[in-house]
């Protein structure tokens, strides 16, 4: 898994690529929580480059979203496709997260 962190004026973009499984998910959680702890108020997680996610990845996203909410940070997700989109739908996470189609829409909403 590769995570690209892009700090913008509108907030921080985290682009996640590859596979988010039980081994790699803690890395995402650590990086996302660091952005929130640093005081960021808008975080967009772009999953367009993510090929695979398991329940461990969903747990890391949920944990991050809970911390974001407590810190009054808005966390949005975009770029859901294929298997990742199906897992989001089945697990009900697409109704918990603010989901946008693209990065631009996520920052604009």
């Amino acid at each position: 898994m590769k995570i690209v962190c892009d700090k913008r004026t509108a907030g921080t973009l985290l682009q996640v690529n590859g596979r988010m499984d039980a081994v790699s998910a803690p890395d995402f959680e650590k990086q996302c929580l660091q952005v929130i702890e640093d005081g960021e108020k808008t975080v967009v997680v772009d999953l367009a480059g993510l090929e695979y996610i398991s329940s461990a990845g969903l747990r890391s996203l949920l944990t991050s979203a809970k911390k974001a909410k407590a810190a009054k940070c808005v966390m949005r997700v975009c770029g859901l496709a294929g298997m990742v989109q199906e897992v989001f739908q089945v697990s009900g996470l697409n109704s918990i997260f603010a989901v946008a189609a693209t990065v631009e829409e996520a920052f604009a909403s």
């Binding site: 398991s54 329940s55 809970k66 909410k69 897992v87 089945v90 697990s91």
Partner: peptide, 13 residues
């Protein structure tokens, strides 16, 4: 989001 349990999704998936 505040009430949602973090675990328990694996077997369900």
């Amino acid at each position: 989001i505040e009430k949602r349990a973090i675990g328990g999704l694996g077997v369900y998936l």
